[in-house]
């Protein structure tokens, strides 16, 4: 396993913001909204966060792994992908689609 990429396993992410807050480079941002989910047999609907966007700015990330360490849901993991080599900084801003673990897309 190469430590060359931080992959997001979208299904596991609860939009808790812990990684965004702990990242020393402040290079993660996410947006989410809350929906009510009623489960069978439950008396009240449960509030669930739905992830709208999740971005890592790889022009700032220093691969310290703090975000992986701090995620309580194992939604972030080291991966062997590489962020692109590019001359355009905007290309280094990767969203949910591009952040999927290798083998998933």
């Amino acid at each position: 396993m190469k430590h060359s990429f931080i992959a997001l396993i979208e299904d596991k992410c609860t939009s808790c913001m812990l990684c965004v807050r702990e990242c020393p480079a402040w290079c993660i941002s996410l947006d989410s909204h809350t929906i009510d989910v009623t489960e069978e047999g439950a008396r009240r609907p449960r509030k669930v966060n739905v992830l709208d966007s999740f971005e890592i700015d790889y022009s700032l990330c220093m691969y310290c792994g703090v975000c992986i360490d701090v995620c309580p849901f194992d939604a972030l993991a080291w991966d062997e992908h590489r962020a692109l080599v590019t001359t355009n900084r905007e290309d280094m801003l990767l969203g949910i689609e591009e952040l999927g673990p290798s083998g998933s897309s």
């Binding site: 913001m17 965004v20 807050r21 990242c23 402040w26 941002s29 996410l30 989410s32 909204h33 809350t34």
Partner: peptide, 21 residues
């Protein structure tokens, strides 16, 4: 000087608008 990406709560949008609870 940099806006902190962790400032927003899931229910508070970037412009300060509160959504939900």
């Amino acid at each position: 000087l940099t806006p902190w990406p962790g400032g927003a709560e899931p229910e508070i949008k970037e412009d300060g608008r509160k959504v939900g609870n």
